[in-house]
Design a protein around this nucleic acid. Sequence first.
DNA 1: TGAAATGTTGGGGCG
DNA 2: ACGCCCCAACATTTC
Length: 472
Amino acid sequence: MKTALVWFRRDLRLADNPALAAALDAFDRVVPIHIHAPEEEAPWAPGAASRWWLHGSLESLDKDLRERGSALHLARGPTLEALLRLVEELGASAVYWNRLYEPAITRRDREIKRVLGERGVQARSFKATLLFEPWEVQTNQDQPYRVFTPFWRKARTQLQLRPPLPSPKKVPSIGAGSGLQLAALELLPTRNWDEGLHARWSRGEASAAKALSGFVDSSLAEYVDERDRPDLDATSGLSPHLHFGEISPMQIAWELDQRSGRAGHAEHANAAEGFLRQLAWREFSQHLLFHFPDMPERNLNPRFDAFKWADDDVGFIRRWQQGRTGIPMVDAGMRELWVSGTMHNRVRMLVASFLTKNLRQHWHHGQRWFWDTLVDADLANNAQGWQWTAGCGVDASPYFRIFNPVGQGIKFDPQGDYVRRWVAELSDVPAPLIHRPWMDNGLLARCGYPPPMIDLDASRQWALAAYKDLRA
DNA sequence: TGAAATGTTGGGGCG
DNA sequence: ACGCCCCAACATTTC
């Protein structure tokens, strides 16, 4: 009897899982394992919202495995020691896993591969998490890309769709005794702040598939036109599912292609292409992080190191975090984040612009808050997004691009429904005033809503001046 | 994946 | 009919 371990990390699905499929092909017994070792990802160990998601996703995977005659074996790190112990205990001759690309993880996994190899244990990793591995897309001079559009132009020509691997009907396993209980990982909050998360999200592979089909059925056709509208339900909501690998980008790309091909309408194809382009941002972020591993810590554009941030202002940062800035669109976004663990992408850009430009607080503060509160917190996406808005990234928004949260509100939340949904104090304010309630004398006091913590126009001028300094 | 300031154009009111 | 002005709409420039 030949036994393999399949080491689940952020590929918490059974369908389209190349490591699992390959192990099932080649071995008599396959033991699915997950090793809890957050300290190995320091300083970017998963935040609170991510841990909440992980709990549910592991629970779901375990249930799906049990329906197939197996179960998820949980262990605690250090990962290498846990793997060696399990290999020994189970008499396994191989460990299979799907690749991740973050610096701390690639470093660790390379070492694990080396040690397993030395001990005569076959260690194989697979491509599963991305459409393009970071080294697969290169300029004609064999360099990594730094700008999204040329990256995508090149990658698009290389995209080879394939049908997703089917979910195995059975996972022949053996009891891998003495595993940990999920509760022992202590992933869930001790204080009860996760009601909003439960209300918004269903975790696990089946929920991910449902989110995809729901999106494709009801929103894809309008995606290009409506994806910037936080007041509408126009986005896919797939990002946390993707982050934890409950669904693969290939499953999504394949489904999009099937639908647009079948429908045969140009607009369907156009919508599918638009969504694929958004998926490509995720690929691009991973590409950048792989080639520029200090992206989460350091400005990709070193000229920006000289930028004069305002002194850290804990009071400012806290008001931003709590959604008490007095700017309705900013507060709506920050409260949506706190309550539901997510924020509409356009609003992410706008609150980030507000923190880094109007308040001129270092982008690290925003990055860290998002890291802890987003259920889709992803090292590459998060770092790339913050560097983009702050203007210090390689393909960054130019320094003078400062969002006006009032203008953004009027444009993308025209009736104010988004603000009313998240900012209870403003629930009775009519559309013309909703994005600038301070224009009506006495309205703020009646609503119990704070005045703007900062003058938008003056702080804009201030930021422009600071950024101009940098250029000189 | 801006916003505001400035420039240009063209239609309509009006003497 | 014509020129003039106003101004909205759009385009371009600048930060």
